[in-house]
Every structure is written in structure tokens, then in C-alpha cells.
């Protein structure tokens, strides 16, 4: 959970902080892989697109869980709100996808602003309960208003071509893949900037020691609210893309399972490091698909796998899959100064 900069020397610490936000060559790997997947596995583009969107969703959750230390079990509230904004707009005739997505970010952000103002005044279990309650209230509302939301059956809708040039393709997921890819790049850059900015450093400070941050005059409450809104907006964008690439929406976007799974994926990958989202989502989604195609869903082997994976992760690798490599990397660095 801690940031790996345990230097005693002040100059070295400052240097590490300055270096931290520089782009390194190794950071290109996930993007190159993402581009390669499109060409190498054309049959799996639907799955790959979903992975890209979920990574964006997980990154938004990482901002609040991994950086600000706010554990949320209701993050699907924002995902679903963004998704429904985009879908209902398209259904009502506003079929331009990017503006609909932007409006999805705005509504999700508004929800984050209002709910954050209320929820973030609480701590620990109460906070957990309230995030969960918010998610469930929205799910139940969407279920009740099924003449608007389409309920379990959902709504099909169509979007016009992106920028008037690239029509969505629900059969081969060509445009759809790059649409998700582009917004993942954008969302990632936003998140990366946020966490390396002084704002992001103060979030880490709040996570590690709230009292000290209060004492040095950080407006703790305000910082938490702000990052909550930013995370809500990114989650809203992810939700909008999720439904736009499929041309269909059901109340599943609000389900508790969505909130639970995304948290699990993030933790499996590792929190507070942005790239944990990439690893966690990819491993989780691919394993889920493999298990369900090879072993089937009945009896539910996948639940068994996830359950055991979670227990083992918490007991033996509390910093996620990426965290497993930390001691190795540290040793390597110490040998080659």
C-alpha cells in the first residue's frame, strides 16, 4: 500500500519524486500489447474491448481506493450513470457518441459531487456501507423504472459514426476497439497527471496519515471530494463506452457484482500504482473466460477460483500481483546503483 520511496536522504527523496512522473520506456509495453492484440486475435476483439473499458473503470477506482484510501463497494453507481446517460440520449435521438459520453461524465461527476459531499463525511465501515447503499439504491431504482431503463431486457440503441467518419461495428469490433483504446489512453493520462501532481501527493498523504495532513493545513475534506468527482467522471466515461460499443444497455451496469468485481480486479493487480488495473483486469477477465469455456458455469468453478485467489492474495500477496515483484525489483536496483 505504501509508495516505494523509503529514502532517508532528502535530496534523494526529492529526486525520486521528480523522476516519478517521467515516462519510462517500460510503460509502453501495455500499449504495444493492446495494439498487437487487435491484429493477432481478431476473434477476441469483443473480449479485448471489454478489457480496455474495464481497465479504465479500474483506474478510476484506483484513484479513490489506492491513492485516497476511500474503500468503495458502490463504484458501479458512476459507471451505470454514465452508461445510462449515453444510452438514453442515443435512444432519445441524440446519437452523436462523443458528446453523449461527455455528458455521461458530467452526470456521473454530478452524482459523485452530491454523494461525495454526503458520504465522505463518514469513515471506515459507515463509508463502506454508504457507498454500497448508494449503488444498490440506484440499481433498485433502475429496476423499478423499467419503462425508462428497459430493466433486465435492456434497450438497444444506435450511435452515429465517430466524428462522422468511423461507424460503430458490433460484429467485428473494429472502430469500437479503437474508440475504447483512445479513451483509455486519454483517461490514463488524466489519472497519471492527477496522481503525480501535488494534488495526488496530498491524497497519498491523507491516506497515510490524515491527522498530519490536517495539521499542516491541507483541506482534507475538499481534496477527497475532488478526487471522488474525478474518479466518478472517469467511471462515467467507462460506463458510456461500455454500452456504446455494444449498442445495448441493461440494468446490469448498476449491479453490485460490477462494483465488487472491479474492486477485486484492482486489488488482484495492485492498488495505488495505476498499472495494477491493467494486470488485474486482464488476468481476471481472461481467467474468467477460460474457466467458463473450459469447465463451464455449472457447477461454478469460476467462483471457486476467484474465492481461493482472493484468500491467497490477501494472505500471501497483500500488495497485488504487481507487488509480488517489488522485492525483486528493489534488490535489482540496489545491485545496480
Amino acid at each position: 500500500m505504501t509508495v516505494p520511496t523509503p529514502r532517508t536522504n532528502n535530496g534523494a527523496a526529492a529526486g525520486a519524486l521528480l523522476r516519478a512522473h517521467r515516462f519510462r520506456a517500460i510503460e509502453l509495453i501495455p500499449w504495444i500489447l493492446a495494439i498487437a492484440v487487435y491484429f493477432l486475435f481478431p476473434g477476441y476483439r469483443l473480449l479485448a474491448t471489454q478489457i480496455l473499458v474495464l481497465i479504465l473503470f479500474a483506474i478510476s477506482l484506483d484513484l479513490i481506493v489506492g491513492y485516497a484510501g476511500i474503500v468503495s463497494l458502490g463504484h458501479a453507481a458512476f459507471f451505470g450513470t454514465g452508461a445510462y446517460t449515453a444510452a438514453l440520449l442515443a435512444d432519445a435521438g441524440w446519437q452523436e457518441p462523443i458528446s453523449a459520453l461527455a455528458l455521461g461524465a458530467v452526470t456521473a461527476g454530478l452524482l459523485g459531487w452530491v454523494s461525495g459531499w454526503i458520504i465522505l463525511r463518514t469513515r471506515e465501515l459507515t463509508l463502506l456501507m454508504l457507498t454500497m447503499a448508494l449503488g444498490i439504491i440506484l440499481y433498485e431504482l433502475a429496476k423499478d423504472l423499467d419503462d425508462i431503463t428497459g430493466g433486465f431486457d435492456g434497450i438497444n440503441f444506435e450511435n452515429t459514426a465517430i466524428l462522422g467518419l468511423f461507424p460503430f461495428d458490433v460484429l467485428y469490433y473494429t472502430t469500437n476497439y479503437w474508440y475504447a483504446f483512445a479513451f483509455l489512453v486519454l483517461g490514463f493520462l488524466v489519472a497519471r497527471t492527477v496522481v503525480h501532481a501535488p494534488f495526488g501527493r496530498s491524497l497519498v498523504g491523507i491516506r497515510e496519515n490524515v491527522r498530519r495532513m490536517h495539521a499542516i493545513g491541507t483541506p482534507v475534506q475538499q481534496r477527497m471530494r475532488h478526487v471522488y468527482v474525478i474518479a466518478a467522471m472517469i467511471a462515467g466515461v467507462a460506463g458510456a463506452i461500455w454500452v456504446q460499443v455494444q449498442g445495448n444497455i441493461t440494468i446490469g451496469v448498476y449491479e453490485f457484482e460490477m462494483s465488487g468485481n472491479i474492486l477485486i480486479m484492482l486489488i488482484l493487480g495492485g492498488t495505488g500504482r495505476l498499472y495494477g488495473a491493467f494486470i488485474g483486469v486482464t488476468v481476471f477477465t481472461i481467467l474468467e473466460n477460460l474457466t467458463e469455456t473450459v469447465l463451464g458455469t455449472d457447477p461454478p468453478y469460476w467462483e471457486l477460483v476467484v474465492g481461493v485467489a482472493l484468500i491467497v492474495t490477501v494472505l500471501f500477496a497483500p500488495r497485488g500481483l504487481l507487488g509480488v515483484f517489488d522485492p525483486l525489483i528493489r534488490r535489482f536496483r540496489e545491485r545496480t546503483p
Partner: peptide, 21 residues
């Protein structure tokens, strides 16, 4: 608490699978 949440959710998953097995 995050560890506890995940750990116990893991147990829920295993119990769900176990019961259906």
C-alpha cells in the same frame, strides 16, 4: 479493512461454489 473485505468476499465465493458443488 480492505484486506478483510477481500478476504471475506473470497470466503463467500468459495462457499457459494462449495454449496453448489
Amino acid at each position: 479493512e480492505l484486506d478483510q473485505v477481500l478476504f471475506t468476499i473470497g470466503i463467500v465465493f468459495v462457499s457459494v461454489a462449495g454449496v453448489s458443488f
